[in-house]
Write a protein that binds this DNA or RNA. Sequence first.
DNA 1: AATGAATGAGGGTTCATTCAT
DNA 2: TATGAATGAACCCTCATTCAT
Lengths: 195, 195, 195, 195
Amino acid sequence: MTSSKKKEKYDLILDAALKVFAEHGFHRSQVAKIAREAGVADGTIYLYFKRKEDILICLFREQLGRLLQLAHDAIQDITDVKQALRTICEIHYTHLENNVDLAFVTQIELRQSSLELRKEIGIAFKPYIELVENVLHKGIEQNVFRPDLNVKLVRLLILGAIDEVVTSWLISGQKYSLAAQVDGTVNFFLQGIDQ
Amino acid sequence: MTSSKKKEKYDLILDAALKVFAEHGFHRSQVAKIAREAGVADGTIYLYFKRKEDILICLFREQLGRLLQLAHDAIQDITDVKQALRTICEIHYTHLENNVDLAFVTQIELRQSSLELRKEIGIAFKPYIELVENVLHKGIEQNVFRPDLNVKLVRLLILGAIDEVVTSWLISGQKYSLAAQVDGTVNFFLQGIDQ
Amino acid sequence: MTSSKKKEKYDLILDAALKVFAEHGFHRSQVAKIAREAGVADGTIYLYFKRKEDILICLFREQLGRLLQLAHDAIQDITDVKQALRTICEIHYTHLENNVDLAFVTQIELRQSSLELRKEIGIAFKPYIELVENVLHKGIEQNVFRPDLNVKLVRLLILGAIDEVVTSWLISGQKYSLAAQVDGTVNFFLQGIDQ
Amino acid sequence: MTSSKKKEKYDLILDAALKVFAEHGFHRSQVAKIAREAGVADGTIYLYFKRKEDILICLFREQLGRLLQLAHDAIQDITDVKQALRTICEIHYTHLENNVDLAFVTQIELRQSSLELRKEIGIAFKPYIELVENVLHKGIEQNVFRPDLNVKLVRLLILGAIDEVVTSWLISGQKYSLAAQVDGTVNFFLQGIDQ
DNA sequence: AATGAATGAGGGTTCATTCAT
DNA sequence: TATGAATGAACCCTCATTCAT
């Protein structure tokens, strides 16, 4: 009972933080504002999080975990690596398009943080990196992807490219469909721009 | 004479800012520290820049201008669009590898800014975008690149991919050569990962 | 039974407080820390003490009571007032030397309190004051001490002098024997510094 | 000019701090309150003092310096060591009686500080200690004071005794004359209480 | 143009105390 | 009696910006 309540309040705060961060940005979001939004006292925040930055980190971990789970489950039964890559991209775009608040936090606010925090984020991001690298490795083994690929570099290129598309879509004011970019994106990944 | 002095001091401040931002990050760089580094009084900064963020914007414009000029000059006489793309990527990587301070400011510090600032930065970034898009358009016209390319999307994908490679190299502690990634990067852009 | 348990817990808390106050100082000693040391819940503290300062006051009362009892018992059968004074001083120094935690609390932490608290402390200190004044009065009656003594003033001088010796010994890091100062102290009280 | 203004503001703040500390105590005195009393902005305080505690230390140094100067000047031409001791005591009592705010700060507020701060205070107090010890040494040399005196111990006893008299006078509400205690105090120091 | 002293708004965090259970 | 989760008031200090000189 107590633990369920604790869980509830923990989530209450994270939900409130997501909303407040998305609206005002990390630096402009006072802890007091998050507390008010969550319906708890300022001090209560500090029963669940060590400091303000921790809220951001936990929020990211939690949310990235869901995205990862979605992607993981979706490619579980897919043997076609090209299709797997497409699915990852599709889920990535779709999930962020359906969760604009989350998109703002990951694409904009999360970058406004100290180098130390970015390293923390990097660690949390590891499983997602591995998901992509696994697909690449499998593709090379299956002779579907070119054997001379530098997997780490290609992974950077793919995730950097995806990231920029999402950020650009956000900054533009979400005036077009993000999910509609999947085909163009994946074709680029697979065939490049050369004739 | 006066204007030349003004020019001098303006540059003095920007040079100081680049150094200080790179060392301490934007938020940890007090205006007073930049002033001391530049050898001027705190108040003098405000004769040349409206506010602290302006220093960052101007610094970015100035430096991006140089990179743009380098790239522009280098592809001037190149008719082979593939080679042009390679040259842009090569200059981008090489220039940032040779100017780590600049790299830190553009890849890390510049992101730690408000949405408004990022829009400003976007505007300054326009000419670089056009440079890349021009190459893409030319390549399509020449039937070297695929005719169905969504140029804006591909440009995002290319610049996002490059950006991530640079950031990752920085965060890793510049433990390997950035310029050595040109081949892998451009091959990916041209042929993708498909066999 | 209940009252005995209460007594037990009351003492448990005071013992914990003495330890925690001595180690961290009054202001740096959170109520939570005392509670943990005592093995009770935070809220339980408030069943026995009105507020944090009360713990300090009660602790002082309790401990001073013991010192007073020791001194009182020791001079009970002493008719020589000079010897009585020496005994009081000896017990004071010895007791604090043997209870450094207590010394820290009385000499350092107790002073870090509001004027109001110091008045409370003054009241608790009354019996000790009377003990000393009684010896002085008796000495005057017996024509052992000078008849023109201002008893209240002399009592202040004596206790102030003793207090400073103890504090200085503490701050010095207890590098010498406090009890060894009894002779020098009492000689000063009795004969002054004049040849 | 500038330095004279700086001096002025420095003193303005110290004067304000003395008043505010005396009235509300150190811990209850917000920096903002001192600033308002001094007629400067909050931030200005920090142009002259590193932190709140520094104000207290500087205040003490400044004021103790004056008291020391007074005592030093007064005993300059006195060859009679007994008279010198009397003069020191007289000036101490008189000065604090004439500067009740100062008395509150030195006797009450200054004690409510961390052990570290008390060490700082101890250093500032050194010259005063030496003043007293010099008189004691001289008295022993002149065969006026007993040759077997433990000078350091006696100095502690004397200053401790004086200190307690002042504090007691303060806590009592200054209902009697402090200066009137000089005779009783000095007689005690010289002859003790023995017949 | 240049100075640099002065300004003052702004917020994360602690912790004594309460109260529902 | 006992718990301990929740409360929320309280405050020092930084630093971007201004302005009198």
